[in-house]
Amino acid sequence: MSTAELNNTKKELVGWIKSLTDDSLVSLLNSVKLSSEGKSIDWWDELTESDRVNILSGIRDYQQGETLDSNEFWNGLANG
């Protein structure tokens, strides 16, 4: 990525972040920032209870073989 492209991407990201209204998304982005600075505690501890439940549900689905490959996923989206 060129310097000009990088600067443009940064400006777009700043604008997008300023427009966010979802507190959990802002918290997630802050966690990424803190982690990149080496200041973060365990990311799991910073998740909402709902996020933890969803992640654990996904892990359980995977362990029970309840998954789709990407073709099945996209075909399901395309064909309803």
Rank of each mutant, 00 (worst) to 15 (best):
L6Y: 13
G65K: 01
V32A: 08
L20T: 03
Y62C: 13
V14L: 08
K11T: 13
W16T: 05
E72D: 06
T3R: 12
N54M: 04
D42M: 04
K39Y: 00
S2M: 14
N30K: 07
T3G: 09
L13G: 10
D22F: 09
D69V: 10
K18C: 14
E5A: 02
G80T: 09
A78W: 02
D42V: 06
S57G: 12
K33S: 10
E72R: 02
F73Y: 14
W74G: 04
W74L: 02
I55V: 10
K18T: 14
S19N: 10
L28A: 14
K10A: 15
N30A: 05
T48K: 06
N75P: 02
N30S: 01
G65A: 06
G15A: 15
S31N: 12
T9S: 05
G65S: 06
K33D: 00
D22P: 01
E37W: 03
E5L: 03
I41L: 11
D45C: 13
I59P: 00
L77A: 04
N79V: 05
E12F: 06
S24T: 05
T3D: 12
T9C: 07
S57D: 12
L20M: 01
F73K: 12
W74T: 09
D69C: 07
K33Y: 11
F73G: 00
S50Y: 05
Q63Y: 12
D69M: 08
V14M: 02
G80K: 12
L47N: 04
E12C: 12
M1Y: 15
E46I: 11
G38L: 11
S35L: 08
T48F: 04
N30R: 03
N54E: 04
K10V: 14
G15R: 15
S40I: 11
S24P: 05
D42L: 06
D69R: 03
D23F: 00
S40C: 07
W74V: 13
T48M: 09
L28P: 00
L25P: 00
Q63S: 10
A78N: 09
S35Y: 00
R52L: 05
I59W: 15
S19V: 07
L29I: 11
R52P: 03
L28G: 06
A78R: 03
W44F: 13
L56R: 14
L77R: 01
S36W: 04
S40N: 10
I55E: 07
V32Y: 07
L68R: 13
N79Y: 04
V26P: 00
S40M: 09
Q63D: 08
R60F: 13
E37C: 06
S35K: 03
D69W: 08
E5V: 03
V53Y: 12
W44M: 13
D61W: 06
D23S: 04
L29V: 08
E12P: 00
